[in-house]
Amino acid sequence: MKILAVDASTEACSAAVYVNGEIVERLTLTPRKHIELLMPMTKEVMEAAEIELNELHGLAFSVGPGSFAGLRIACGFVQGLGAGLNIPIVPVSTLAALAYPVLEEHPDAMVMPMLDAKMNEVYWAIYALDQDGELMIIEKDQVNSLEEVYAHLADKQYNVLAVGDGWGLEPESLTQLNGTLIEDRHYPRAGDIALLAKKDLEKGLGLYADQVAPVYLRHNIAMTIEEQKAFREEKAKGAEA
């Protein structure tokens, strides 16, 4: 299987190609320059992987939460490619993409990705792996002030591995939330988005260009991640019928 994935949801911008078990990826920190770099980075990884666009089986992108502008850029980018190539697209949660590689290394852990959402708020969730090694939602993707996060989790006594730049906003957050910081995991990566998308593409859960939209969380103007997944599952069932 060959998948192109992109991410522009945070200050980092990345593109990656998954080709039969191997990942070719490029990532750079470029605040407000995603629109300029996404196409060149895509061309670079495609050339490095030695494949053409017409060989791709699917596309994937970080659907949100994240920067409003960045989410729109990535969504529009894959919509254009997906429509032209007539191949499926998998929207992947930004927070799930942050959590997944840590869970691969620590399969018995719970991982709490947290990103700076500005306006004194954070995007956050908690993920784990189920007995089949599939990503499992413990706390769904949401946006809150840190005080609201503390209150929400006060009685739950989770011990979590902490990833994302949101953990740097308040020094006491690690103590308040029983977190152990993973130092080198501040931003999502397109390679991890591709790996998560592969699972859905294999199940026939891809969407087409006119069916994907960013998930902002802060404004209820698009389908939530859970709604998009349910939509994809219904689509897959219809294809089997």
Rank of each mutant, 00 (worst) to 15 (best):
E25S: 00
L27P: 02
T28A: 15
T30Y: 14
P31E: 05
R32M: 14
K33W: 03
E36I: 04
E36Y: 07
K43A: 13
E44C: 06
A48H: 04
A49T: 02
L53S: 07
L53C: 09
L56K: 15
L56S: 02
F61W: 03
F61L: 01
V63L: 05
G64M: 06
P65A: 05
P65K: 03
F68W: 13
A69F: 02
A69Q: 08
A69D: 04
G70R: 01
G70H: 02
C75K: 00
F77V: 08
Q79T: 09
L81R: 10
G82L: 06
L85W: 06
N86Y: 13
I89K: 03
V90W: 10
P91Q: 07
P91H: 14
V92H: 09
S93C: 09
L95Y: 13
L95A: 04
V102W: 12
L103T: 08
D108Q: 14
M114C: 05
M114N: 13
M114P: 10
N120I: 00
V122D: 00
I126G: 05
I126Q: 11
A128F: 11
D130R: 15
Q131N: 04
Q131V: 12
D132Y: 09
L135F: 14
I137L: 13
E139K: 07
E139F: 06
K140D: 15
K140W: 11
D141K: 05
E147R: 11
E147F: 08
A151G: 01
A151M: 14
A151F: 11
Q157Y: 08
Y158V: 01
V160R: 07
V160K: 00
V163Y: 08
V163M: 07
